[in-house]
Nucleic acid binder design. Structure first.
Lengths: 199, 199
DNA sequence: AGTGTTCACTGAACACTGTTTATTTTTGCA
DNA sequence: TGCAAAAATAAACAGTGTTCAGTGAACACT
């Protein structure tokens, strides 16, 4: 079993190097040869541990999904569903602004989405998303909203925060001076909270 | 000047071939060699007309920005600013769902954003965006909203529609069955309209 | 007609990319 | 120590963006 541990260790080192390179140059920019070089292996060796670059994408996504989950999870401690929902939103945005590279990987990268449903990164992502949906369901159950269309409410609010983060991550807020962007996002979040109150 | 016309003609043919290939395989997937082959030139010839692939990106983006402008522009004919705003939103979403590839190019592609402010594609995009902002300003002036923070209102609503389209374009709505996605988007749009009424 | 110049274009090269495979090296065990 | 299995490599293939020396045709001028 020592050999299995060693194998796991090498897999780990490959993934760590991949994550570093991904953060530096993005998924397209990161190359198998770079990864190999960084851990002192030959390019071919990577393929003994990961089937191809897609599998590396899934592994990186899983990492990112875990960081995201840990970032938003503290909101779960809040009992009142409405306050929990607001905290969820704030934490989601905060994750996106603090880890634009990870957010990009999870929601914006043109990855190999074809079979992603079978991947654990997807499962983890869905699990975290469900916490959000469940919170809205709690709000609906306790009559915090006039509407009872949980699915549409969840999607609507998700679209808003996702839109905010992804315009930021992909650098499409250049019409606003850089130092104003976060403040604008803050005002917008306050606005959507007020709007949600009369949902 | 005949020679200038011929040059323009070749530029046009390159761009047309590039657009075709972009639609087929995306910006990364489209290659200079493919473009050259499609118009019967050698790869090097492309560089006599476009400095590099970035310049092709800008040219394609300009095309996309023009299609988008034409898609949303009819909303301008509506006099009532609130109705104009709603129509704007609907048209924006419709553009995104009908031309996911173009939307991707404009808002989701990791293009060479560094100097994009100097490009005409950016100027055109900003001009179209201004029509949207102006519409909100009109609403504010005519007291359609309680809030007078035009900038935040514009950003908030933009985030919503952009979030909707980009989750769709980048295939992150797999938790919803494919045939339900457009309907869900419709319910969500109705919801945001209602929410905006009590802004 | 012959010369010189210009200009569009080519084809080969360079340094990259992901991936596969035959070959070599290292390792663990009898 | 010897040998089989596992691990790692080097080289190759087909592709990428980009550059550049060289080619051939068109044009202008003597």
């Amino acid at each position: 079993m020592v050999t299995d541990e060693k194998k796991e260790d090498v897999k780990r080192r490959i993934l760590d190097a991949a994550m570093e390179l991904f953060r530096e140059k993005g998924f397209e920019g990161m190359s198998i040869r770079n990864i190999a070089e960084r851990i002192g292996y030959s390019p071919g060796a990577i393929y003994l541990y990961y089937k191809d670059k897609s599998e590396l994408f899934y592994a990186l996504s899983f990492q990112a999904a875990a960081v995201k989950r840990d970032h938003v999870a503290p909101a779960l401690a809040i009992e009142n569903p409405w306050e929990r929902l607001v905290d969820f939103g704030r934490r989601y945005i905060d994750f996106g602004f603090k880890h634009p590279d990870l957010y990009d990987l999870l929601f914006l990268t043109r990855g190999p989405m074809a079979y992603i449903e079978n991947q654990e990164c997807w499962t983890l992502g869905i699990a975290t998303h469900s916490l959000f949906v469940q919170t809205i369901q709690d709000c609906v159950n306790q009559r915090y909203f006039k509407s009872t269309d949980t699915q549409a409410i969840a999607y609507t609010l998700w679209c808003h925060v996702h839109g905010m983060v992804s315009l930021f991550v992909r650098d499409r807020m250049r019409m606003y001076p850089e130092e104003e962007r976060e403040a604008l996002a803050g005002r917008s979040f306050a606005m959507i909270v007020k709007m949600a109150e009369c949902l």
